[in-house]
């Protein structure tokens, strides 16, 4: 068992918990929390793979930074969308939000 596997194991723990939360949670903000967990695991996995193999290490670190930027953008947009949905439906329960309208 090498240290690359150990770091990948940590990121896989985050992946599994994120998927578990994404499927069991019913409100939009809980889903957002799970997606952040998934993105964190992805960043950790990329940095571990880049630092411990012959791949370009600086590319790996920059990729993790790009993931953080994407996570920030995604969180901003989801915040706005959740606000609009909460205003219109008076709930953020994903099972109750089932109407489409123009």
């Amino acid at each position: 068992m090498n240290s690359l596997f150990l770091f990948q194991l940590a990121s896989l723990v985050m992946l599994a918990c994120g998927l578990l939360g994404l499927t069991t949670r019913r409100d939009l903000i809980g889903m957002l929390i799970s997606v952040e967990l998934l993105l964190n695991g992805a960043g950790l996995s990329i940095v571990a793979a880049a630092q411990l193999t012959n791949a370009d290490a600086s590319l790996g670190q920059l990729a993790a930074l790009l993931i953080m930027g994407l996570a920030a953008a995604e969180a901003t947009l989801v915040l706005a969308i959740v606000l609009v949905v909460g205003k219109r439906f008076k709930t953020t329960d994903a099972d109750k939000i089932s109407e489409l309208g123009g």
Binding site: M1, N2, S3, L4, F5, Q8, L9, L12, V13, L15, A16, C17, L19, L20, G21, L22, T23, T24, A49, L52, T53
Partner: peptide
Amino acid sequence: GLVVGVMPFVFLVSACLNYFKQ
């Protein structure tokens, strides 16, 4: 949720163990 969370975890752990070379 347990199935969705655990299955990829098991597959990816075995893939990491077998194919990832440090």
